[in-house]
């Protein structure tokens, strides 16, 4: 082979095939080295650190050899009623947000891809996607003030329309819906664009055929478009699930877990434990959330792929 001629003469010959391949493509190891280093140092090491520390005593967390306490941290957090409440509200919030975001995105994508909206489409897409790339801190701070009872835009608008005022983030009965709306504003553009990207791949012939057969617009959506969008729905549901299970920034900016712990989501609670130097408990919560993300993502993916959900 001509290729081997270009390999330097130092090539060892008596090695097994895999070792010869390693030698021949050794420069690829050089290429991958910085990437692998980043993965190890800022990925695997911290993950291992957090798993290890969830079994260690907080006071010794910064030592290279911390004291191990077995399952004590997990026992502490699972006997903490505030953590159980945090788990529940996280799951509740996630369920509502996933359904609303994916449903809104699907509806809006159908609207934006309809034949009635030819002009201005670029602007509509830009408007819905702009919040996705906007720094989340800035977006949520603006929402926080818009919900303000005294001079927020939300209540001013409701008041001028003669509608009842909204408690916003100050009232523990309305705070979850306030966060759902602000986060929908922030994230729904992402899911909408994923649906729109997938809709470009649909086969227009199917839709035309159904129309010729006399199918109504609703029937065409339900029996023609929707089944073709199934992979996109699965992707969006899984993305949304991961996104909302780890809801964090909106709480830090707008509510600090309140009022009265009604928005004390797991990632925020874990962060608070970290700030109070309860590293062991913080890491036990982090590991629990990671486990939850993995199990729920896999279960949902499996369910959406296999069952006929319609």
């Amino acid at each position: 082979m001509a290729v081997t001629a270009s390999i330097p003469m130092t090539q060892p010959t008596a090695l097994p095939a895999w070792a010869r391949e390693m030698w021949r493509y050794r420069v690829l190891y050089l290429f991958v080295l910085p990437f692998a280093a980043l993965v190890v140092v800022f990925g695997l090491w911290p993950i291992a650190q957090s798993l290890v520390l969830s079994f260690a005593s907080s006071a010794t967390a910064f030592r290279l050899n911390p004291d191990y306490v077995g399952l004590e941290n997990f026992e502490t957090i699972f006997s903490d009623r505030r953590f159980i409440a945090s788990l529940n509200v996280t799951l509740f919030y996630t369920a509502i947000s996933v359904v609303l975001n994916v449903a809104f995105a699907l509806g809006y994508a159908v609207l934006l891809s309809s034949r009635y909206l030819k002009r201005g489409n670029t602007f509509f897409r830009l408007a819905v996607f702009l919040p996705v790339i906007t720094p989340d801190v800035a977006g949520f701070i603006v929402w926080k003030w818009m919900y303000n009872q005294n001079f927020g835009a939300v209540n001013a608008a409701l008041g001028s329309l003669g509608l009842p005022l909204f408690g916003g983030i100050a009232d523990s009965d309305t705070v979850l819906s306030a966060l759902v709306v602000a986060e929908l504003w922030k994230h729904v553009g992402f899911y909408t664009i994923i649906f729109l990207t997938n809709m470009q791949l649909l086969d227009p012939a199917l839709d035309e055929a159904a129309e010729l057969e006399g199918a109504t617009a609703w029937q065409r959506f339900w029996y023609v478009t929707l089944p073709q969008l199934r992979p996109a729905i699965t992707i969006n549901v899984v993305f949304a699930l991961i996104q909302f299970l780890k809801t964090f920034t909106v709480v830090v900016v707008m509510t600090k877990g309140g009022p009265n712990f009604s928005t004390n989501f797991i990632s925020y609670y874990a962060f608070q434990k970290f700030e109070q130097a309860s590293y062991g408990e913080a890491m036990a919560m982090a590991s629990t959330l990671f486990g939850l993300v993995l199990v729920l993502t896999y279960a949902l993916y499996w369910a959406l792929e296999r069952t006929d959900w319609r």
Binding site: V40, F42, G43, L44, I47, Q49, S267, A286, L289, F290
Partner: peptide, 26 residues
Amino acid sequence: IRYGFLLTIMYPFMLLVIPVFIVMFH
């Protein structure tokens, strides 16, 4: 390396940052 990377990006970002504090300390 690939699986290590995939694991890293599956880990909730906000909770990865906390142990990164300890890594940065070391």
